[in-house]
Design a protein around this nucleic acid. Sequence first.
DNA 1: TGTTTGACTGACCGCGCGTTCAGTCGGCTG
DNA 2: CAGCCGACTGAACGCGCGGTCAGTCAAACA
Lengths: 206, 206
Amino acid sequence: MPLKSKEEVVQEFRIASIQDATMRVIARKGMAAATMQEIAEEAGVAKGTIYLYFRDREELVEKTFQTAITQLMNEIDVAIEQDIAIEPKIRAIMKAHLDFFGRNREFFRLYLSMRMPEGPAERQHRQTQQCQPQYRNRVQRLADALSRAMERGEIRTVNAYKLALFIIEGSTAIILERLAEDAPTQDETDVDLITGLILDGVRERR
Amino acid sequence: MPLKSKEEVVQEFRIASIQDATMRVIARKGMAAATMQEIAEEAGVAKGTIYLYFRDREELVEKTFQTAITQLMNEIDVAIEQDIAIEPKIRAIMKAHLDFFGRNREFFRLYLSMRMPEGPAERQHRQTQQCQPQYRNRVQRLADALSRAMERGEIRTVNAYKLALFIIEGSTAIILERLAEDAPTQDETDVDLITGLILDGVRERR
DNA sequence: TGTTTGACTGACCGCGCGTTCAGTCGGCTG
DNA sequence: CAGCCGACTGAACGCGCGGTCAGTCAAACA
């Protein structure tokens, strides 16, 4: 039965609004300072209601993170799977990142928090187990695409994983800067800058 | 009177060991999860003792951050002020970063935490006021060096600030990766990789 | 219409934090 | 050597958190 019952629709709506609220509050206060009380108020429900849909705070944050990152991964996949030259591919990947984080400013901070887990060693470990694969996956996919370009002789041979790290974090910094700007730069300008840097560097050639 | 009295020496030693302990605990548990109790135990003093040297937790963390970042800035200044071509300059700056974070692994996490402040808006603002200048300063100095190289025609003209951001965050990612490795890569390898990327990109030229 | 149900609420609990301060004690002073 | 000083301690406090659950009430049911 593919049709959703009224109850299912209501449930999904609740879950989505609580997750949205979670993102906004974490974006505002930071991971550790985001309280269940404030998330509940933001979502327009009572604190207890959240516990009807999520076992505890940890599960709420994990599920919220998963929902959002899955969406990002899907968008990047589209860009990465296209069988095109490395230059338009890098452009497409950078554009996907800029678009996504532009549309989901709130998510960005949750994303950074998850990459730098807190608390007792055991919890850090669990959070890393859950988040690191998503991140490494993203880096690894780019690294694979770069490796293939190296084999094809499009780009010179270097450590593909470190190159991917460099590209992703470098552009993350530019995204961060862009998000802080009042009048964000045009997408294309930053995409051009990043792509140009990666491919040709900055040395003047005479 | 340049000579330090016995009391001053003891005081400075206490302050230094408490700050060292603070760095280690934050490195282990993260900014928000680092408790005064654990910092005190790590430093081998009672919790109350910390309050003889620091007004509150906030001041402790701020002062600890300042002490460490000042040292980093000094080491980078040496590299940046040298009047040499842009290539050896970038090499020297990258090397200074790698050296510093290699010697002060603990500091790295405190550094990242300070860049992404938590809590109520007002506290975030204060932390940003206190930390952002240090960071922007570092980026700006690199941007200035790059601007000068652009004027001299050594490198092509792009947005110097964004280029500096890209370089610093990209290499930060590589440092992070290196710190996680069991057998860290040789310094020179990463410095070569980063410098090569920035100057010449990765496109194969035939 | 009287009854049942269960989604939702929010006062409450226990815990662990940052912070305080009365008390301790080794060493200096007169 | 008695008396004092002040660096140091750690039990105790208040607060605010995550999590609980007895109570509420609108909608579904009979």
